[in-house]
Design a protein around this nucleic acid. Structure first.
Length: 485
DNA sequence: TTTTGAGTTGTTCGA
DNA sequence: GTCGAACAACTCAAA
């Protein structure tokens, strides 16, 4: 093959990249292109969307790397369905290479492109694809645990986790790249956005550094630390995994390495201390398998984007009010952990996983608001927003998804705070008006004695809201609503 | 076909 | 404060 075009989408990196690796081994000349997809961008509500900043800055790094090899990143703005085939024709590419994307919109888009030009797609954003993990009957799994078991049995590490190393000497010389624009021609303003602050460093270099540091420093303690929102116990890789600035295979490779230490002495030592080093890595890898599980669910059942997975809940009438939904969005529900989490989301575009479950449970089970409203709000706000994981998470919390268990899916927002933010550090960080309350009062200020509220400068209903609903009452309403057939 | 065991992340109640 | 059982009953996946 003479010329190949590599179209990057949610894989904004050059290392361990399936499509780029394949293209640079098959073709003599390879150009890399990114399209600011107007179909996606036009649907974004906020002009200062952080995701655009993250993408632009990650692309700058890709471009700089390509420059180092005498090439450039090609950039376009518009509908890829027409832009990619026309670029391929203009540049005389024999084929377009891309990594497979399992979302309904992406599938439709790629099918339209494939109808016009040879499009070769690759497994890259997951370790195992939907057709690779199936029940004995050949049907998709609908419960995580058997899926997980099968996933682990199916995994062939040498093959599925192999590094895809691109041959960067095959990158097209700058002089041949006249068919499209370059990144500097598309500042965020030009595509309708303004730069915004990020709480993390974008790009593949930062992503890999983050991954390595996480595996070295925090993976062993991950099982426990991951649940405490006041600390840095999570991998904080969600954004990088969403945009593909880090390779999912590299994540698994490093985690697996840390399970089987080279030095047997360390292992013995660890055992004698009753310390199980496998717990953390295994727990984290299970989280990554959850990510694949929801990718597969979305692939097999794309209708989950529109409606509950569970048939019996499709006609459910959620009775929550717009007023309550607005209070949830603003972080003004009167439940400190919920409000702290929502304010953190609003200000940073990030929310800790534990808190996503807490606020999702609160919106659906305490406020009885349709989970799709919360899902859409997360989709708008989260820097790491991923359709499959977000939908899966919300449907799980709402008990409408795969593996629904209404009676086990109602979180008590006070208990969750006492358990996972025992000192109230996270709450104080995001709700300054409660900062002076003691750890024992901060999770349920309405139960505190008047003296303490006074001393802390808290006046319920004025400086901080009273609870907008009674959890004990709403819990029963939710159970009643969901047990109706 | 029938049966069996199990289901991410919880909560509440009563001893 | 701690602990185990109950929660309500359905669906999935495998034997």
């Amino acid at each position: 093959m003479k010329r190949a075009l590599v179209w990057i989408r949610r894989d904004l990196r050059l290392h361990d990249h399936a499509a780029l690796s394949a293209a640079t081994h098959e073709a003599d000349e390879v150009a890399v292109v990114f399209v600011f997809d107007c179909v996606i961008l036009d649907a974004l509500a906020d002009k200062d969307d952080r995701r655009l900043t993250y993408i632009c800055r990650s692309l700058e790094e890709v471009d700089a790397k390509l420059r180092g090899h005498g090439s450039r990143l090609l950039v376009m703005h518009g509908d890829p369905v027409s832009l990619i085939p026309s670029l391929a024709r203009e540049w005389n590419a024999d084929a377009v290479f891309a990594n497979r994307d399992y979302e309904p919109y992406a599938r439709e888009r790629d099918a339209k492109v494939a109808a016009q030009v040879e499009l070769r797609t690759f497994k890259d954003i997951v370790v195992l694809e939907p057709h690779e993990v199936a029940t004995k009957e050949g049907s998709p799994f609908k419960v995580f645990t058997p899926f997980h078991r099968c996933w682990k049995e199916t995994l062939n590490p040498e093959q599925d986790l192999a590094e895809h190393v691109p041959n960067l000497s095959r990158l097209a010389a700058l002089s041949t790249l006249k068919a499209a624009g370059f990144l500097e021609q598309y500042p965020q303003e030009k595509i309708g956005f303004v730069p915004n602050a990020l709480w993390l460093e974008p790009g593949e270099k930062a992503a890999r550094t983050q991954l390595k540091r996480f595996v070295e420093k925090r993976l062993d303690g991950y099982a426990e630390a991951r649940n405490l929102p006041a600390d840095d116990g999570t991998s904080a890789l969600s954004v990088h995994l969403r945009f593909g600035t880090v390779s999912i295979r590299e994540g698994f490779r490093l985690a697996r390495q840390s399970i089987v230490p080279n030095a047997p002495k360390t292992n013995r030592e660890a055992k004698s201390n009753h310390f199980n080093p496998a717990t953390g890595p295994e727990k984290w890898m299970a989280e990554l398998v959850w990510r694949e599980f929801y990718q597969h669910i979305l692939w097999h059942f794309p209708r989950v984007v529109e409606e509950p997975f569970q048939e019996q809940y499709r006609g459910l009438r959620w009775q929550g009010t717009d007023e309550h939904f607005a209070r949830w969005c603003e972080g003004q529900t009167g439940y400190p952990l919920v409000d702290a989490a929502m304010r953190c989301l609003n200000q940073t575009g990030y929310m800790h996983n534990r808190l996503r479950m807490v606020v999702a449970s609160f919106l659906t089970k305490d406020l009885l608001v349709d989970y799709r409203k919360g899902e859409a709000y997360f989709a708008r706000k989260l820097l790491d927003f991923d359709l499959a994981s977000n939908n899966g998470g919300w449907q799980w919390a709402a008990s409408t998804g795969v593996d629904p268990q209404p009676y086990f899916r109602i979180f008590n927002p006070v208990t969750q705070g006492e358990k996972f933010d025992p000192e109230g550090r996270f709450i104080r960080r995001w709700i300054p008006e409660l900062r002076e309350l003691s750890a024992s009062a901060i999770h349920a200020p309405w139960e505190a004695v008047e003296m303490e509220l006074l001393a802390a400068g808290v006046e319920l209903g004025r400086t901080y809201p009273r609870p907008i609903v009674d959890h004990a009452v709403q819990r029963n309403l939710a159970i009643e609503l969901l047990s109706k057939k």
